[in-house]
Amino acid sequence: MLREWTRADTSVLLRVPSVDDDKYSRGVVGLRTGSAAYPGAAVLGVEAAWRAGAGYVLYTGEARDAVLAKRPETVARTEVGRTRVGAWVIGSGTDAEHRSADERAELDAILRGDAAVVVDAGALDLAGEGSAPTLLTPHAGEFAQLRARLGLDELDLSHEDDRTTAVVETARRLRATVLLKGARTVIAGPDHDPIVVGNAPSWLSTAGTGDVLAGVIGALVAADPGRPLAQSAAAAAWLHGHAAARASGAAHGAAGHPIVALDVADALPGAIGELLS
Rank of each mutant, 00 (worst) to 15 (best):
F143T: 02
T177Q: 02
H159P: 02
P201L: 15
R184I: 09
P190F: 05
A183D: 13
W203S: 03
R163P: 05
L135T: 12
G128T: 06
I187P: 03
Q145C: 12
P133Y: 10
P133C: 12
I195W: 00
K181D: 00
R172I: 04
T185R: 09
I195P: 00
A171Y: 02
G182P: 04
R173G: 07
L155H: 13
F143S: 07
N199L: 15
E160M: 11
L179E: 07
G198C: 08
I195C: 03
G141K: 11
R175T: 14
S158I: 09
L204D: 01
T185Y: 10
D161W: 13
T134E: 11
G151A: 11
L124K: 07
D153Y: 06
A123W: 03
A200H: 01
V196Y: 08
H192L: 05
G189Y: 01
L135F: 08
G141N: 10
D161F: 12
V196Q: 12
V186E: 08
V186D: 07
L126M: 14
V167H: 07
D161I: 14
G130A: 11
G198E: 14
D191M: 04
V167A: 04
G128R: 02
P138Y: 07
A127L: 12
W203N: 04
A123N: 09
E169H: 08
L135N: 06
T185N: 12
D191S: 09
G128A: 08
T170V: 01
V167I: 12
A176L: 00
N199G: 14
L174R: 00
D191F: 05
H159W: 05
A148E: 15
S205F: 15
S205V: 15
P133W: 09
R163G: 00
R184L: 10
D191A: 06
A148V: 13
V197E: 03
P194D: 10
L152I: 10
I195K: 01
L150N: 09
P194A: 07
L152K: 08
G182Y: 03
T170H: 00
G130I: 12
G182N: 05
Q145H: 14
Q145L: 14
G128L: 07
G182Q: 00
G198P: 01
G189I: 00
R172L: 08
S158M: 10
L126V: 10
L174E: 01
D193F: 09
G151Y: 09
